[in-house]
């Protein structure tokens, strides 16, 4: 029989380099998100538009298969920019829902459990914390948006040949820039709401409210002023117009595209300010 002396000893194993510490925040937040089976199932469902897109691109180039089912390569009027725009919408929409589901758990839960001070008492800055949480959304949203979009674009370019990819570079660029802009905007916005509205259901409600109500308000402003001034606060129209402009198609409303970019940048700036105001290692009780 042995008697072991039990004393405290400092951890002397390997440490993650400081620049990667934010990844710890990301790692645990991702694990938390996928701990829900319903979310995992929903996430898989969100990959469906990309899968359908890949299938349709493949199908449109498989003459033998099309003939078997009685179709031609023009069965959808050809894979025009409209097809890719439509696909973009069906990738961006689920991305918003994923952000709405995941983001309230990211910061609101830490604030309501008073865990922020614990995070910030570690070698993690507020910027690391936000980047770590934002990385969760970036990791989750990328496969269902720009990665999927680029996959379809590259597949189409490969199957089509004849410099199709070079001639239609705008489609690939629209997928990349549009989706990345969308991810940045909704990530920052949803994180900011999550920081200000502590209770998850309320945070989700606020996110839906902001998107729906601001869109309704913008339309109402456009209607009563008979201008496109409302589009300055119309977030979904702003992103849609940015994407449409890269596709090279006509945009909605009369505002120059720079104003749509301004809307997106202003939303990001406001969100960063909100995060800056709320994320502190201490709380002031009034």
């Amino acid at each position: 029989m042995a008697v072991y002396e039990r004393i405290w000893r400092r951890y002397d194993g390997n440490l993650l380099p400081l620049k990667w510490r934010a990844a710890v925040v990301t790692k645990y937040a991702l694990a938390e998100a996928f701990s829900s089976r319903i979310f995992a199932a929903f996430y898989v469902l969100c990959l469906l538009p990309t899968a359908i897109g890949v299938f349709l691109v493949y199908l449109s180039h498989n003459v033998g298969l099309l003939q078997k089912v009685g179709l031609t390569t023009e069965f959808m009027g050809g894979l025009t920019a409209v097809f890719f725009q439509f696909l973009f919408l069906w990738q961006a929409l689920p991305a918003f829902f994923v952000a709405v589901i995941v983001s309230p758990s990211l910061i609101a839960a830490d604030l309501s459990n008073n865990a922020l001070s614990l995070y910030l008492s570690r070698p993690i800055t507020r910027r690391d914390y936000v980047l770590g949480k934002m990385a969760v959304l970036a990791i989750l949203l990328s496969p269902i948006t720009w990665m999927g979009g680029l996959l379809i674009f590259l597949l189409q370019a490969y199957l089509e040949g004849n410099n199709w990819g070079i001639e239609n570079w705008r489609i690939g660029m629209a997928y990349l820039v549009g989706h990345v802009a969308w991810i940045v905007v909704i990530s920052l916005l949803t994180l900011a709401i999550s920081a200000w509205v502590r209770f998850k259901p309320a945070a989700r409600g606020a996110l839906f409210g902001i998107i729906f109500i601001l869109a309704g308000f913008a339309e109402a402003i456009n209607a009563v002023t008979r201008t496109s001034a409302g589009d300055l606060i119309h977030l979904t129209r702003a992103i849609a117009n940015v994407v449409l402009s890269i596709f090279g198609g006509p945009t909605e409303g009369d505002l120059p595209i720079a104003f749509n970019w301004f809307t997106l940048i202003a939303t990001c700036a406001l969100s960063i300010w909100m995060l800056h105001r709320k994320l502190r290692a201490h709380e002031v009780v009034e």
Binding site: I213, A220, V224, T225, T227, A229
Partner: peptide, 16 residues
């Protein structure tokens, strides 16, 4: 904030 929206709308209408 919600209640302020229609009021803001009416003000914008009067301006434009």
């Amino acid at each position: 904030l919600l209640a302020a929206m229609p009021i803001a709308l009416a003000l914008l209408r009067s301006i434009f």
